[in-house]
Design a protein around this nucleic acid. Structure first.
Length: 491
RNA sequence: CGGGGUAUAGCGCAGUCCGGUUAGCGCAUCUGGUUUGGGACCAGAGGGUCGCAGGUUCGAAUCCUGCUACCCCGACCA
């Protein structure tokens, strides 16, 4: 386990911030609570986008774009929704600046006050449903399966790089259906899609389940989520899929004529994942040497580093390296040949480890003579010398092995850190001293949930779909319970 | 918004208590040379409105007042 987790003195947050900055992913911007995503970090985001986009399109979804600004009045249409987001909205009140008549600089022109304030979207349900009203008239217009890639702003009191920034990038799907069943099916389909993506693409095992009423999305009838466990024992909500019922259809008066010729409100879902996934990547896989990026996600699969003395050797090694690069690229890998003369090999080794590149190939004069190449794995930090003749097969096989190994390791950690507890003492002990997931009985009331939260800072992360029926007693109140739910402290 | 901390070169910091030459150090940068199988070394060079605005003083990074930003811990949240 990484040092930063075994030493209580280590400041986890500081480590996290440092790692992100050193690995060249992001930095704090000049704007409160926002971040600059640097090119390498953005390359990872683009990989996430590409894979999700592929999955969305394969399930019949299409992309569209809706405005950044939402008229304030839209927000008050759905009561629970406004309640949930009102406290964290950035509001545009003016549209013009002017020179300060009393001095230097500029001031907001008081004459440029907007009739109605505009909200910078914290999520797009309202403006999208206001638009859907004009798009949906008949059952023939349904289902409407639209996704948007966008930025949103939530004026959080406390921010943290990637996990909670004031502005973040995400995708939000907003679908409309003719029946309740169809909308529920969509909600399920998407949470499965997210779970598959997290598990098999990002190598982050997740638990699927329902959110408790108090953790539910503002305006939803039900919220499904995937919950991941970070290496420091805290849970991270990695994606959500909401069944919105007819709430937004009623709020925005979106009715359609069904097959029977009768008017009905449409059924809705919305769902999203964000740049927070990159926080999950860092915290689920990172070690003391930096990031580990699973091969399927990695923007660079293989880096080739030459080791040489003088230009003669470099030329000779470059010839081998360029040939190798081409062969690997033909096998579908993204390969970087770092022949910079400005850094020594040792520096490059450390740098690509920090960036989490899955496989590193080093070629020196010895390898040039012997027809070999040194292969180093980022996940195990092991090195071996391999003949160049079968390097392509070796490396492609390694990609699968590293991907599987990372998922296996994360899953083992998750399972090892999941505790089944029966008593309040055990519960407190795990939450306070061990960290991780706690599977415990709960009497089903928001009141008890609140008490537990106040006393331990642990919340119900999820009511797992696959939690079996099991009679037990609530860990806090002793009242009867029919299934275990998952508690944890969370980000 | 409450509690604590910080603000000095691109980054990390010392100097502030106890005001006094030209504001230092490490890393990074640049130049030259030697290096290159795990974060190179030597020599030299450049880089500062000391967070902002006032005040005290012959003199302020240092003292006083106000403000702002950031970090950590809470409350809130994806």
């Amino acid at each position: 386990m990484a040092k930063f987790l075994t030493s209580r003195e280590e400041n986890y947050s500081q480590w996290y911030n440092d790692l992100v900055i050193k690995a060249d992913l992001a930095e704090n911007s000049a704007v409160r609570g926002c971040m600059v995503i640097k090119p390498y970090g953005y390359a990872i985001w683009e990989r996430i986008q590409a894979e999700l986009d592929r999955k969305f399109k394969a399930t019949g979804h299409v992309n569209a774009y809706f405005p950044l600004f939402i008229p304030k009045s839209f927000f008050s249409r759905e009561a629970a929704h406004v309640e949930g987001f009102a406290k964290e909205c950035a509001v545009v009140t003016h549209y013009r600046l002017m020179k300060d008549p009393n001095g230097k600089g500029v001031i907001v022109d008081p004459d440029a006050k907007l009739e109605e304030e505009l909200i910078v979207r914290p999520t797009s349900e309202t403006i999208i449903w206001n638009t859907y009203k004009d798009w949906i008239h008949s059952y023939r217009d349904l289902p409407l399966l639209i996704n948007q890639w966008a930025n949103v702003v939530r004026w959080e009191m406390r921010t943290r790089l990637f996990l909670r920034t004031a502005e973040f990038l995400w995708q939000e799907g907003h679908t409309a259906h003719a029946t309740r069943e169809e909308a529920l099916e969509e909600t399920n389909k998407i949470i499965d899609l997210y779970a598959d993506f997290a598990t098999n693409f990002m190598a982050i095992p997740v638990i699927k389940g329902y959110k408790s009423v108090s953790e539910r999305f503002a305006g939803a009838e039900d919220t499904y989520a995937i919950e991941a466990l970070m290496q420091d024992g805290k849970a991270l909500q990695a994606g959500t899929s909401h069944f919105l019922g007819q709430n937004f259809a009623k709020a925005f008066d979106v009715q359609f004529t069904n097959r029977e010729g009768k008017l009905d409100y449409v059924w809705a879902t919305s769902w999203g994942v964000s740049t927070r996934l990159m926080g999950a990547l860092i915290m689920a896989h990172g070690d003391d040497n930096g990031l580990l990026i699973p091969p399927r996600l990695a923007p660079i699969h293989v880096v080739i580093i030459p080791i040489y003395k003088g230009n003669d050797q470099l030329d000779k090694i470059s010839e081998i390296a360029v040939d190798l690069k081409l062969k690997l690229e033909n096998a579908g890998l993204n390969v970087k040949y770092d022949n910079r003369d400005t850094h020594k090999p040792g520096f490059k080794f450390a740098d690509y480890e920090l960036k989490g590149v899955p496989v590193r190939l080093a070629i020196g004069p010895r390898d040039a003579d012997e027809g070999t190449v040194e292969v180093a794995r980022r996940d195990t930090l092991t090195k071996e010398t391999v003949s160049r003749d079968n390097i392509v097969g070796h490396v492609t096989a390694l990609m699968d092995e590293i991907q599987n190994n990372m998922l296996r390791k994360a899953t083992e950690f998750r399972d090892k850190s999941t505790y089944y507890v029966e008593t309040w003492e055990e519960f407190r002990d795990v939450i306070e001293n061990k960290g991780g997931f706690v599977m415990a009985h709960w009497d089903g009331t928001p009141e008890t949930e609140e008490v537990i939260k106040n006393e331990t800072k642990a919340t119900i992360r999820i009511i797992p779909f696959d939690s079996p029926a099991e009679n037990g007693r609530c860990v806090r109140t002793g009242r009867p319970s029919e299934r275990r739910v998952l508690f944890a402290r969370s980000y």
